[in-house]
Write a protein that binds this DNA or RNA. Structure first.
Ligand SMILES: [Mn+2]
Ligand SMILES: [Mn+2]
Ligand SMILES: [Mn+2]
Ligand SMILES: [Mn+2]
Lengths: 224, 224
DNA sequence: AAATATTTTTAGGTTATCCTAAAAATATTT
DNA sequence: AAATATTTTTAGGATAACCTAAAAATATTT
């Protein structure tokens, strides 16, 4: 059989992929350690072994990059993760705050056939319950032209297309605010005193904090 | 959190449960080793650790029994396994020969909520695609009054309710023979010469070998 | 450029799980 | 009951992942 990849290795690949998205070039050992909640020494050891296996490129003191092979696996993991999130959300009626932790386990199930049938069963969704794009079977990820709500100017309008933070407390809080994917938001006013923002959420006036505004992604509607 | 149980430990629990079903009393170290394809020495070591954790009862040279706790976990694993098989079979259109290996992975996903929602989503199925009963949330398993086709006498009739062997080759072969759960079988004749059996499968005459007849479970229809 | 701080690696250990070979206990034959 | 066979355990190792503390390399300040 093809080289076996452990769940741990898969988590390293995902972490490196995620960190590579943010910063060009190679990924620091410490960054991986932080992302995975492990000691830096453990990361050094692990990435050496993974480099030997051809999953990553690694040079002492210089950092780590995914190899072609590692990149492909990482994208497939993200694909599986997000497809499972769709399944949990749409068919098992979990909330968007609950799906991530379970998908974190499900993404490691190994069966090419399973992912593709799941994809087809879900009718080839393009975005997961958090608005994140689902890589296709070739690993292509379609990027969106969204930006944090916080970046809008007074008077601008848009639709909620995603969230930056994926934690349960944040998502539950958005539920309380009735802010969901698809919500139509208009920025009424930035309050200089406490940095809060007055918005219109589906025609209803609301106040949100800066912290929240930075974690909501908006696709701006051209208002000509 | 409650004591963490590894996938390996879960597989030991399932193996011990399965072996306990066949033979009363305690389970031999060698039997577990065979069931799990590991060396007997590894089993000895593992079960000592599991006994310390309260998952099993173990006495040197005497054998192993599941504890209350271990038994509960084993039943829940079987419940999960069979529910996932239903999902794969009914919703993702896998064949009954394909579902087992994937369910073998899925059964280790940890989320009480997930199993119960899956159960409800599948509309509380009582049997899996192989005709095996699905334990309820309390671990109760409903037994069936079925017997191997091989045990029927000439002229007896029944319905296929299960299979003893779960391998892909066997199940694919049954597909070829058009023998499925629910097939109506009548025994026409036992051929003494080669031990083959002539049957009527949904009104069609067929010949099956002893090996096949021993691996098909039938619920006999009273023909008064 | 030297001194200081930060990052990364190395050294030395641990735990879970597995293995083979040898020893000990138990079961079966004679 | 002795001899033989089988089963189970112990002894001694291996590997994958982790960890802490110390050493080495690299980056940032002075
Ligand atoms: Mn997620
Ligand atoms: Mn997501
Ligand atoms: Mn199965
Ligand atoms: Mn089954």
């Amino acid at each position: 059989m093809s080289i076996m990849i452990s769940t741990t290795e898969e988590n390293y690949l995902k972490a490196i992929f995620k960190l590579s998205e943010k910063k060009e070039g190679s990924v620091n050992t410490n960054a991986i350690a932080q992302e995975l909640n492990t000691a830096a020494a453990s990361v050094t050891e692990m990435i050496k072994r993974m480099a030997k296996k051809g999953l990553i490129h690694y040079e002492s003191y210089k950092g780590t990059r995914l190899s072609k092979k590692g990149d492909k696996i990482a994208r497939n993991l993200i694909r599986k993760h997000r497809l499972w999130e769709c399944f949990l959300y749409e068919h098992l009626e979990f909330s968007w705050g609950e799906v991530h932790d379970i998908a974190e386990q499900l993404e490691h199930i190994k069966s090419e056939e399973l992912v593709n049938r799941l994809d087809s069963y879900l009718d080839f969704p393009r975005f997961d319950p958090h608005g994140d794009p689902i890589p296709d079977a070739n690993g292509n990820i379609q990027e969106r032209k969204q930006q944090p709500l916080f970046n809008l100017k007074k008077g601008m309008k848009g639709v909620v297309t995603g969230v930056k933070e994926h934690t349960k407390p944040f998502l539950t809080y958005l539920d309380q605010l009735k802010i969901t994917l698809g919500s139509e938001i208009e920025v009424i006013e930035f309050n200089k005193y406490d940095d809060s923002i007055k918005i219109l959420n589906n025609k209803v006036e609301q106040l949100i904090t800066q912290k929240v505004a930075k974690n909501i992604f908006i696709e701006v509607i051209n208002t000509n």
